[in-house]
């Protein structure tokens, strides 16, 4: 009888890569914890403060609603105007950065580069810069939201433009349309629904953003966080938080319904 050959078994995959990844991740985490002075002991000493704070927050001070309602309307107003400015500015920028509208990469490449740069700047930072330029009030907030919205809307829209059907574009070229006619009759009908949903989506984002812009003095309800937290009036803080939450949820609901209808 010949010796039976050892059956060929698949070797288990090497675990080295996995261990190395885990080690690297752990190293990152420890370095980060060291850099930020995050320790569990600090968390546990902080927790009683936190629960005390949460206890102070209930019940919310409903009488404070009268004071903050005008600020809430200002917040919504800022979001509406900021989103509109952003949407209008985003149209030419989206067209310029779509590679199937302007074939030359000399046009869309620099436009996209600037667009990406704009999107790396957080909206609160923009607001802080505009507050330095224009002074306190809703105006810097509106400009910050406008520029912030251009970044989102233009990016999403140019991606939608790049995925449109080529047929209408070619037939418009074939009948000798100029660039503007070409855009109006072949591009716009295909992306307008997408564009409106993106604007609505950005509006939802902007409502949330507008609610905190006041922290740097750019108008809206955010201003009241500073005021009430400074005086340790946590019942008023919870009123602001709940009020903002309700408004955001209502707007999200209607905007979501509209977006579903459009697509």
């Amino acid at each position: 009888m010949s010796q039976l050959a050892e059956p060929l078994r698949p070797t288990p995959p090497r675990k080295l890569k996995l261990y190395f990844t885990i080690f690297l991740l752990a190293l990152f985490l420890f370095a980060s914890a060291y850099q930020t002075d995050s320790t569990f002991s600090e968390l546990f000493t902080g927790l009683p403060n936190m629960t005390g704070l949460l206890v102070d927050m209930v019940p919310p001070n409903w009488a404070y609603l009268d004071n903050i309602t005008p600020a809430m309307f200002e917040t919504i107003r800022m979001a509406v105007v900021g989103t509109t400015i952003g949407a209008v500015l985003a149209i030419p920028i989206a067209l310029l950065s779509a590679s199937n509208v302007f074939q030359s990469s000399w046009i869309w490449y620099p436009v996209r580069f600037v667009l990406n740069l704009v999107r790396t700047i957080p909206e609160l930072l923009l607001a802080a810069i505009f507050v330095a330029i224009f002074g306190l009030g809703p105006l810097p907030g509106i400009f910050a939201l406008g520029i912030f919205s251009v970044g989102i809307i233009a990016k999403l829209t140019y991606e939608a433009i790049e995925s449109i059907d080529k047929g209408p574009l070619e037939s418009m070229t074939a009948v000798g349309a100029n660039k503007l006619q070409w855009i109006r009759c072949a591009v716009v009908p295909q992306v307008s629904a997408h564009f409106i949903t993106y604007v609505l989506y950005t509006f939802e984002v902007n409502i949330r953003a507008a609610a905190i812009l006041g922290l740097v003095g750019a108008g809206g309800i955010g201003l009241y966080y500073d005021r009430t937290l400074g005086f340790l009036e946590y019942d008023k803080v919870s009123t602001i938080i709940l009020f903002t939450l309700v408004v955001v949820l209502i707007i999200d609901y209607f905007s979501g319904k509209l977006r579903e209808k459009l697509l």
Partner: peptide, 13 residues
């Protein structure tokens, strides 16, 4: 973050 600052003090944590 504002609430956590009240709990654990200002800073990265």
């Amino acid at each position: 973050a504002l609430l956590f600052i009240k709990a654990v003090g200002p800073g990265s944590f």
